[in-house]
């Protein structure tokens, strides 16, 4: 689905990514692990066309996405859920969702409002409320639902478990499982190894902008020194 090759990114003079290479297969959930500042968010933003200075290659279904503006990448079928819950605070829940709405795609599941409301029952209750009046957990759910309105084939989830209460983290795990059931491919960035292990099929570890590890969780467990070194758990 998604193939990143030798991706280099920088902000101003500061190089963040050094030759990142990774793949995401069809209907696969892959975790991108690493500490804060390791380059997880920058990887996602680079895939999404939100970092201006970059080189390398981002292939989505074989087509080059690098250098394309983010709206083109989104329309091609890549959905992005940012880490800071960037909802539109002055818009209602329903309007937030409508901003994300895109045409139905023949080869991807279609997410209707009804479907989303069953997945996120809180949002239905609050559909007329302004974004700013939602709780942190509800905002997190809204960012995901808004991205799903675009009927993506690939979803990039940036730090879905960060800064939310354990009960909501559980709900988040169910949502990711549902995405996989629907046939989507999901890339999540995580610092929380337990959460990542629970929801994803395999993992990459990124450290200081370079890929340090690639493999399944079973393999990762067999090498405790790897997670100790790069994740410091």
């Amino acid at each position: 689905m998604l193939e990143v090759r030798e991706l280099n990114s920088q902000y101003g003079g500061a190089k963040i990514l050094h030759g990142v290479t990774m793949t995401l297969g069809a209907n696969e959930v892959v975790a991108l692990l690493g500490r804060n500042g390791a380059g997880k968010s920058t990887t996602m933003k680079s895939i999404m066309g939100m970092v201006r200075q970059k080189s390398g290659s981002v292939l989505y279904e074989g087509a080059e996405m690098l250098g394309r503006p983010s709206h083109v990448i989104c329309r091609a079928g890549v959905g992005y859920v940012p880490e800071e819950r960037r909802i539109f605070k002055e818009l209602t829940v329903e309007e937030n969702l409508s901003v994300g709405k895109r045409e139905k795609r023949a080869d991807a599941p279609e997410w209707t409002l009804d479907h989303l409301y069953t997945l996120f029952p809180n949002l239905k209750e609050r559909r007329r409320n302004l974004g700013k009046h939602l709780s942190g957990g509800e905002q997190q759910m809204l960012t995901i639902a808004r991205t799903l309105m675009g009927n993506p084939k690939v979803v990039l989830l940036d730090e879905p478990s960060e800064g939310i209460a354990p009960v909501i983290v559980e709900q988040m795990a169910h949502v990711i499982a549902e995405l996989k059931r629907e046939g989507l491919s999901v890339l999540i960035s995580e610092q929380n190894l337990h959460f990542a292990r629970l929801v994803s099929d395999r993992a990459y570890i990124i450290e200081k902008g370079q890929m340090r590890y690639e493999g399944t969780f079973a393999e990762l467990d067999a090498q405790p020194e790897v997670s100790a070194k790069y994740l410091a758990v």
């Binding site: 999404m48 939100m50 503006p69 983010s70 709206h71 989104c74 329309r75 992005y80 940012p82 960037r86 539109f88 605070k89 002055e90 818009l91 309007e95 937030n96 409508s98 901003v99 994300g100 895109r102 808004r146 991205t147 675009g150």
Partner: peptide, 25 residues
């Protein structure tokens, strides 16, 4: 109108509107 909602959304977070598939330019 959808255009209007998009304009209001862009007033709050332009980059995010782009990442949701809207042609910012």
């Amino acid at each position: 109108t959808r255009w209007g909602v998009l304009v209001r959304a862009a007033t709050q977070d332009r980059e995010m509107v782009g990442a949701l598939g809207v042609n910012q330019a």
